[in-house]
């Protein structure tokens, strides 16, 4: 028998499967093109024009002027600094607190299930609600926290947490930590549960003390999970809008780059300038993403 080897590029069966796949994907991809890529492209386009809301169809091209205008605005740089301060401090605190709680929940303690359920609550309620609840608890005269501090004799009279310009950023960070720590806990806990128990048991039997087990076993094995969690949180923190806005409106102390961009757009009705600011936000977030993903990659490559 002569073996007839007919090399086909791709068989009909394979092509049929690919066609089906694209058909199934089409609705979702079209939706994403319409609500994500098209608007993003339009934003980029508008950022080179002097369009305004009074007459959005009538505009002219002004080149890079919007970008240079924004770069020359002190308020933009202040907003960027606020955003970065907020991002670095809150993500750092969330990671430490999240790691601690996750380690605790990974132990067999009574009520573990209850804590694991309770921890979802700050995550599930709207940021607006969280902001309002904390604002109420931090109220200068009637807030429960000031009351408690006065009763404990720690302070003489109520502190205006949200009204005091030097405190308000701290309050924003504090509330954000409360809202998003659950997310950190869940991701780190999932990472912890991927670590085989035998590895820990082997170390225990070998008499390795707990702190060394933590540093040399748990933490290195958790690095990928923490890395992913930090990535998600940083990107989220970089575009933060609602918490600052609800708590302090347009206060310069807590203005983030998202608030700045929206102000250009909505308050000042400048589509061109607002688009340029939005584009800056996009690139800031993209830069952060590339930096972190690059670090994670490098980390993964060197640890191999």
């Amino acid at each position: 028998m002569i073996a007839r080897v007919i090399a086909r590029g791709r068989s009909r069966l394979e092509r049929r499967e690919a066609t089906a796949a694209w058909l199934f994907l089409a609705p979702a991809l079209i939706a994403l093109a319409a609500v994500a890529f098209w608007p993003l492209a339009r934003t980029l386009y508008f950022s080179f024009t002097d369009a305004t809301f009074d007459d959005p169809s009538n505009y002219g091209f002004i080149g890079w002027r919007n970008f240079t205008d924004i770069a020359g605005d002190k308020l933009w740089w202040l907003a960027l600094r606020n955003t970065l301060t907020f991002t670095v401090i809150s993500v750092a605190l969330e990671t430490c607190l999240g790691l601690g709680i996750a380690l605790l929940l990974n132990q067999t303690i009574p009520g573990r299930g209850a804590i694991r359920a309770a921890i979802l609550i700050p995550w599930a309620i709207p940021v607006v609600v969280s902001a309002k609840v904390w604002e109420w608890m931090l109220h200068d005269q009637f807030g429960i926290i000031n009351n408690a501090l006065i009763n404990l004799g720690l302070i003489e009279q109520g502190i205006a947490w949200t009204a005091n310009p030097s405190l308000v950023m701290g309050v924003v960070i504090f509330i954000d930590v409360w809202i998003t720590t659950p997310f950190m806990v869940l991701l780190i806990l999932a990472g912890l549960q991927l670590i085989p128990e035998e590895v820990q048991e082997a170390a225990i039997v070998d008499g390795v003390p707990w702190w060394k087990r933590f540093w040399s076993i748990t933490l290195p094995l958790l690095r990928p999970a923490i890395g992913v969690a930090v990535l998600f949180r940083v990107l989220d923190a970089m575009r933060m809008f609602d918490l600052s806005y609800v708590l302090a409106g347009n206060s310069q102390r807590t203005m983030t780059i998202s608030i700045y961009a929206r102000n250009q757009l909505v308050a000042f009705q400048e589509i061109g300038l607002g688009s340029a600011a939005s584009t800056w936000v996009f690139f800031a977030v993209a830069m952060a993403a590339i930096l972190i993903i690059g670090t994670l990659r490098l980390d993964r490559a060197t640890s191999r």
């Binding site: 073996a3 007839r4 080897v5 007919i6 090399a7 086909r8 068989s11 069966l13 394979e14």
Partner: peptide, 9 residues
């Protein structure tokens, strides 16, 4: 026929 052949009949 669950896996398409790369070559042959």
């Amino acid at each position: 026929g669950l896996v398409p052949a790369t070559a042959g009949e």
